[in-house]
Design a protein around this nucleic acid. Sequence first.
DNA 1: CCTACCGATCGGTAGG
DNA 2: CCTACCGATCGGTAGG
Lengths: 192, 192
Amino acid sequence: MPFSESRKDQVIQAAAELFRVRGYAATSMRDLATELGIEAASLYSHIKSKEEILITLCFGMAEKFMDSLDQVEKNQSGYAGQLRAGILGHIAVMAENLTASAVFMNEHRHLSDKYLKDFLLLRINYINRFKRIIERGIRAGEFNPVDTKLAVMTLFSSLNWMPHWYDPEGIIDPEKLGNQLADMLIEGLKTK
Amino acid sequence: MPFSESRKDQVIQAAAELFRVRGYAATSMRDLATELGIEAASLYSHIKSKEEILITLCFGMAEKFMDSLDQVEKNQSGYAGQLRAGILGHIAVMAENLTASAVFMNEHRHLSDKYLKDFLLLRINYINRFKRIIERGIRAGEFNPVDTKLAVMTLFSSLNWMPHWYDPEGIIDPEKLGNQLADMLIEGLKTK
DNA sequence: CCTACCGATCGGTAGG
DNA sequence: CCTACCGATCGGTAGG
């Protein structure tokens, strides 16, 4: 049945917005219900638990980020080119899912141990794929021999903080932003 | 009386650690009491409320960051030099107060409206002082004409994410880290 | 999607 | 710093 899950999606979207603004722990199921104009108990005909919403949001975003990087590694050659495309892809995914991205980054720690372990594994894998691009770029003489851990952490710090200040109503579009950010970060790496 | 506040400081330090790991909302006064080996009700002979702890931590760190930047603006000349010294100062304050810094950055949104407003004002002032250094550097021809908002946001993204990954037991010391970070960020700004 | 409700836990107070 | 306790709120269930 088409659109049969749309009410569940609405619940998850409204929850994402509240989780982003107030945080997961400070958002009650009654807050969420009020937002949707129903009673708290009624939420449970759409979702199994509060945590199920968080799981859906965190792992859903993880998948989008992974898919983006898959495309980059398949299509892009040259390490500076791969790094730039990776940055653009990451920003594009975030810009299309600003609210869910903020939850992905700031609220994943509220996952129970079982899910948190898997989540952190996915995240470290993703980061390591970027780190490897930089390492290979250094070995190929395309980048300066910087501290790769520091470089990749600086990269993700810049990327991940974006939901805190990026204004979707603003003039700057995600691709232009991505290129400017890539310029700033890659120019510091490139050999002259 | 010297050290007369040390028990209160212990309470605040233990709270900072819990707030950092679990978040403010997910940390109960009973968690905090257990950590200190006392009953929850006993906490209230040292502090007035849970929020008082958060206020102390957030505004205490704000003051340290401001003091650091005051020193920089007084002693340092040249915009690249001011920017580098500002970055080093910010990192030094963070490295000396890693736990409180994490709370400062991630938990301030749980302040009640009254305090949150003041806090956000302090923060925007601090950021704008860095932005002005970059703007002046551009006008003086010392930096490339980048988007200053983007530049300053990238800068603070990198700085503020540090408590998430910086390992105080690791080999890399704060000053070396600060200089590397400053290199990466300032080289992308400087005119060649 | 609602009414009615549960046991658990929350921040905090009274009084010592 | 403790015992004893408060009213409010939490995530979630039963049954319709």
